[in-house]
Design a protein around this nucleic acid. Sequence first.
DNA 1: TAATCATGCAACTAATATTGTTGCATGATT
DNA 2: AATCATGCAACAATATTAGTTGCATGATTA
Lengths: 152, 152
Amino acid sequence: MRHDTRLSRMLHVLVHMDRHEGAATSETIAAMLGTNAVVVRRTMAGLRDQGYVRSEKGHGGGWILARPLRDITLLDIHNALGAPQLFSIGLAGDNPNCVIEQAVNASLAGAMHEAEAILLAKFGKVTLAGLAEESSKRWAKPAHCSLEMEHS
Amino acid sequence: MRHDTRLSRMLHVLVHMDRHEGAATSETIAAMLGTNAVVVRRTMAGLRDQGYVRSEKGHGGGWILARPLRDITLLDIHNALGAPQLFSIGLAGDNPNCVIEQAVNASLAGAMHEAEAILLAKFGKVTLAGLAEESSKRWAKPAHCSLEMEHS
DNA sequence: TAATCATGCAACTAATATTGTTGCATGATT
DNA sequence: AATCATGCAACAATATTAGTTGCATGATTA
Ligand code: FES
Ligand code: FES
């Protein structure tokens, strides 16, 4: 099963943007993520629509944080990405009137619901400012990154 | 993201097998699941290897439960299927020496780990006998199913 | 005003993973 | 010997996401 790394990547990008003065272009971000600019625009469009970032055209344009990191949680970004499915396991839907399938699915769904609620609650309690702070603590040696964003 | 419904389907099958006298052929099971026999064999091979079912060749052959339902939990079956990834979201792995990515991933991984532990613990507490019992409760009218397995 | 830079959007292509299929070998029953 | 059923491996189909290309639009700069 393939993983959706958009949340992880967008969080990374947003924290970087906070350290970065001025706008970050899609091209720059794409280089950082090892992808291309259109994918970045596509992914960040959701964040823009929810008001977490702004995008500006023309010279010196690009992406800018629209809100302080302390006001953004992991859950916010998850939702801005369309709140994609968290679980890779799903319920079978053949034989909907089979009581056994119903019982199986009800049991699985219950367990998954509970786990999901806990996960989302955790996401809601972590702010991007918290992540930025945590990353500062890890900063012993200035990690050498693949693009020219400042690490200080 | 596509869902892995093998767990749900296998649970369904196993509970049915308990009600069904004699062996169930891959073909029969495949018809029930709307798939084909080879897929069934492939999926059930893991359950056989872990000793939850046996398979027999030749006339009257097929699949037979090797243990009582009360001795099998959802977690057992999940593991027998190779303990596939539970989450569809994953951690980005570009820039492994970027402290920001590290902090982001550590936070996500922590939350996911906790949710996963809770989910698996729940799976471990539900037996297939429990599911069978629950399905009996739901049995108001005998559901008409797509194949000739008895519902009583 | 013209050139350049950057996003926005839509359509198309490529990569990937899973599922489904086919064919043949093996063993069991009748 | 004929039939039934699994075991296994190789192949094809399918679906979904990621990535690409092309063009339009708006902003800045000269
Ligand atoms: S890419 Fe995150 S620090 Fe350079
Ligand atoms: S398929 Fe589950 S009851 Fe018939």
